[in-house]
Design a protein around this nucleic acid. Structure first.
Length: 166
DNA sequence: GTAAGGATTGGC
DNA sequence: CCAATCCTTACT
């Protein structure tokens, strides 16, 4: 069954590991469908988390992070790759989960490429979208927590074990 | 207005 | 090791 907003309105440190084993579904305009199991996620939590984009405050780019959970946050990195994030938590508590890998696609940049993401997905509602959502197929995998990738600039926050891998 | 740099990847 | 490539943010 499709995950609803309720699922995503929980704290990101709960949602990020719970997403492992869930199925990501993307339908394309030609009618085809892509399904893959989420195998790696990363949590970004609050304005005080220097690795979180919301650490710079509310801007046009980070605005959706302040919404209640269940929305999509996409952004272009290095001018080349659209990274997929899911906003979590209550309204006005900026946090989100980066989808780093699927069973069939490893690497956040590759996930965005496979799903053919672009800026039109910014703010997409996963509970009602007809082209992108997450399903619970009754499977929860065991996981291990690691430090996040590529956030060496984040001071003490880089040491948080907020990356979850199946 | 201008410049610096990034939650990455693939190619040299 | 480093270029690709462009948007966001910070600063003059």
């Amino acid at each position: 069954m499709r995950l609803d907003n309720k699922f995503f309105e929980t704290d990101v440190l709960q949602v990020a590991p719970m997403l492992l084993g869930k199925t990501l579904v993307r339908t394309f305009s030609d009618g085809s469908e892509f399904r893959a199991v989420i195998t790696e996620t990363e949590a970004y939590r609050g304005e005080e988390d220097l690795a979180c984009h919301a650490s710079k405050g509310k801007t046009p780019r980070t605005e959706v992070l302040y919404a209640a959970g269940g929305k999509v946050y996409v952004y272009l990195i290095y001018g080349m790759y659209w990274l997929l994030n899911i906003v979590t938590g209550p309204k006005d508590f900026p946090q989100g989960v980066l989808i780093r890998s699927l069973d069939k696609v490893q690497g956040p940049g590759r996930v965005g490429k496979q799903l053919q993401l672009d800026k039109s997905f910014y703010g997409e509602n996963l509970a009602t979208s007809h082209r992108l959502w997450v399903e619970d197929i009754g499977y929860q995998c065991t996981y291990t927590a690691y430090q996040r990738i590529g956030v060496d600039y984040a001071g003490i926050w880089k040491n948080k074990l907020w990356r979850f891998v199946c």
